[in-house]
Write a protein that binds this DNA or RNA. Structure first.
Lengths: 209, 209
DNA sequence: CTCCTTATGAGAGTGTTGTCTCACGACGAG
DNA sequence: CTCGTCGTGAGACAACACTCTCATAAGGAG
């Protein structure tokens, strides 16, 4: 399952191997639960990992940090995700692809993502430690602009990134599904459209002239 | 404080007055706690309302429904909110104003709104029962388009409303503050900009022709 | 193999969201 | 004024998120 980060160098000292095994067992059990779609809570994780609740809390101070790390390990990296469109230069198409990719992977772990948002929304500090998927993804998708738009109008570029941070997000997906009543498919399509619209609008403000 | 909805007609039967008083006491206590900025939970509300926990749960099956109703009574109605711009015809300006207004009132009850989102995000059913502030507000702001854009391109109009539902929202505000690290003021400004951009983009797609 | 460090398990305890039962007591109807 | 309904309070209960303590046992070092 999860291999120790580096089995040779830091494992020398003391009972580091044992700790590494326990930690991996907890993370693996969490990922199993996430994939199975069941409820992910500390008691369930501890049971699945054949570990006591106390031990689980020893390795992960709270459910949020556990979910964060488990999800970070499950989600493919944004760099890999955008490889299929590496040759595409149009930022609008790239953002559309990136948005669709992110929201689809969120749908794959919907329960866990909902739990993470729920746990972090009440604590603005905690939210900062969430996996920064969206930012890496947005940066990657807008990379073609780094030498052009980003330099000619850095403020507008920063605003575009903020615009997209709101839309290219699990929160947006859940808003569209829960409040607007869209199906998952329609919600993804709507968010993709919104993201593309924002990107296109930022690139051609000439319409008003 | 909170007056019975209709003190004359339905209060005739039995102990309806008593029930009305208890219900009002709970709601009033909740609003007091919300305004004071303190933690809003059932035990605290019950204590403040001089009522037992069990009674509080009898009137409001869960914290979410209590928060929903308390917040709905506190927030000014969108119709009133947009009165100052009743004479403004430009949808872009109207949306900007509406967004700023909504996000500022969310900031005024930030704790309660965060609690409500936290409680409803894990349950897509429950989310549907949240106060529909944003939709009424968006409809109101886009009202000048009802006879023009809405009729010429109803699909695009619906998409614009969905775009805005994502941006004109507490979720967007918290994303900008917690994840992007913006100050409340900057977050509001950013969301206002995004909402205006989306509206403007929907109204002049001619740029591509 | 022995000793000792230390990871671990077990349990109690706190605070929260709820659910359920039961007895009290106040209010209204007769 | 008495009777009975019904709102209410109190408390037990379960589940989850933690925190803390203490005893056990597994692991490595000599």
């Amino acid at each position: 399952m999860t291999l120790p980060a580096d089995p040779s160098s830091p494992a020398r000292t003391g009972r580091a191997n044992q700790k590494e095994r326990t930690r991996s067992a907890i993370l693996d059990a969490t990922r199993e639960l996430i994939k199975s779609g069941g409820a992910v809570n500390m008691p369930a994780v501890a049971r699945a990992a054949l570990v006591s609740d106390a031990t689980a809390y020893r390795y992960f101070p709270d459910l949020l940090s556990l979910l964060r790390e488990a999800l970070a390990g499950i989600l493919p990296s944004p760099v890999d995700a955008l490889k299929p469109i590496a040759h595409v230069g149009d930022p609008v198409e790239r953002i559309g692809y990136a948005t669709r990719w992110l929201l689809r992977s969120v749908l794959g772990f919907e329960g866990a993502v909902r739990a993470m948002i729920s746990a972090s929304i009440t604590d603005s500090q905690a939210a900062a430690s969430r996996p920064g998927q969206r930012f890496a993804l947005i940066d990657q998708a807008l990379a073609p602009l780094n030498e052009s738009f980003a330099k000619t109008d850095p403020k507008a570029f920063a605003q575009l990134k903020r615009d997209l941070a709101v839309v290219v997000s699990a929160e947006a997906l859940f808003t569209l599904m829960d409040l607007c009543g869209l199906t998952p498919k329609a919600a993804v399509a709507s968010a993709v459209h919104t993201a593309k619209t924002l990107t296109a609008a930022a690139l051609k403000p000439a319409a008003e002239a």
